[in-house]
Design a binder for these strands. Structure first.
Lengths: 232, 232
DNA sequence: CAAATCAATTGATATATGTCAACCCGTCGG
DNA sequence: CCGACGGGTTGACATATATCAATTGATTTG
């Protein structure tokens, strides 16, 4: 693993505070691999042998049941996924596939559990990270249960706008069919939802979104930190 | 706090392995209180000053947005709630109200965080509990996004049946309007959904459910451990 | 006991969302 | 350049779900 990657991983909240030799020993057992796009990295139901870290590229977490499929989340550099399964030594609840060419680090789960017991700072970081993940899913659940698809899209656009720096125009960070799945609707419906937001000053050209009337959209979307603020 | 309650709390997975004096010191700062039914214990958005433990009765976790409300989960004895907010020292994401007369223990959040740093076994238990909570929400999310309301009800009944011991007939553990909210539908729709399951051998009288054709219902519901098995 | 209350149900209807088929329009490879 | 392909869009339609209003039936309360 190149030195710069090593240092980038070290900087993750999860690893930043732990003792040097514990981090080194975690990394010693780690693999780093490049994957092409559209590769299924893990499959739900399988045992969780590795904690995964996305170094570059992006990964889609999705689930299937009875022939249907839904996108649960997207993982972008640099962050980890399936920490909970690793900690519990339980089967994956979600599958993961690369969305593009990606570089992934794999840390054996048993090493993570061992270091967890040995390093108080790491343990604290794991707990904080898990609590964060938990709260994110609760927010997503509230979004799903309390809002219509139009409201979900409106709030998604506001979040994305903020994430992109706050300018009136910005790019969607992934293709619309996947956005539809993340938001819990069909691609056709998403297309109509974009039209449904036109009266509130939203215009779309390809992946480029422009919010022409910020106040109007916010009045409609009614964003709420307890649902839309991912930092708390 | 009566000795029997003290011992019951001690037996919770979260506290079972920790050192005696750490547990004692946690409990020293704790309050125990009796609440009547329909009391709002916590309100979403407020700071998380206490970790709560339901000793008897039951508590509804719910959320609101824009005048709508949805039930997120029910907490029954003996277990804790809002662990994640306590650990992160972040605002509650859900409100909680007693469903019936309930006895609740309150442990100051800062004590929990302090003992977490001091007791490795407690830390490990907290992580396991959080990972469990996280996975439960992921399952709930899959349930919501991948299934229709009829399928959700069918699988709920199968889970409830198993929880009640597996007999063909059993009681719903709470009122239908709340069940509807938990399943993400209106009470009217739940009523129709019960009718929709009649062809699969489900009959309902008040809160009593009878599954007359187990195989038929399961063939329709297609239960899946990665969604419906709460233990893993 | 009678009145009031509230959960549950039912029917009629409106709205939201999904499905299917067709089409448009870029991109990519021969 | 052409044609195949795939994502996106659109329209027509079907289905799922919510809403509203009315009724029932059980429970509570004065």
């Amino acid at each position: 693993m190149p030195d710069s990657e090593y240092r980038d991983i070290r900087k993750l909240d999860l690893f930043a505070q732990m003792a040097d030799d514990n981090f080194t020993s975690l990394m010693r057992g780690a693999y780093v691999q490049n994957f092409p796009a559209q590769i299924e990295l893990i499959t739900e139901g399988e045992p969780s042998d590795f904690l995964h870290i996305v170094i570059s590229g992006s990964v889609d977490l999705f689930s299937t049941w009875n022939g249907r499929e839904t996108s649960m989340a997207t993982v972008r550099p640099i962050s980890t996924f399936i920490l909970a399964a690793t900690i519990k030594d339980a089967p994956y609840l979600m599958s993961a596939r690369t969305l593009e060419k990606s570089r992934i680090a794999l840390i054996p789960s048993q090493d993570v559990r061992a270091i967890f017991d040995a390093d108080m700072n790491f343990a604290r970081a794991v707990v904080t990270e898990l609590a964060q993940c938990y709260r994110s899913v609760i927010k997503a659940q509230k979004d799903l249960k309390l809002r219509t698809s139009l409201e979900r899209l409106a709030n998604y656009l506001l979040r994305q706008q903020r994430h992109a720096g706050g300018a009136a125009a910005f790019e969607l960070s992934f293709e619309k069919r996947r956005l539809a799945s993340v938001l819990g609707m069909t691609p056709e419906n998403l297309s109509r939802a974009f039209k449904g937001l036109q009266p509130y000053g939203v215009s779309v050209t390809g992946t480029r979104i422009s919010i022409d009337n910020q106040a109007d959209l916010e009045r409609f979307a009614k964003p709420n930190p307890l649902i839309d603020d991912f930092s708390t």
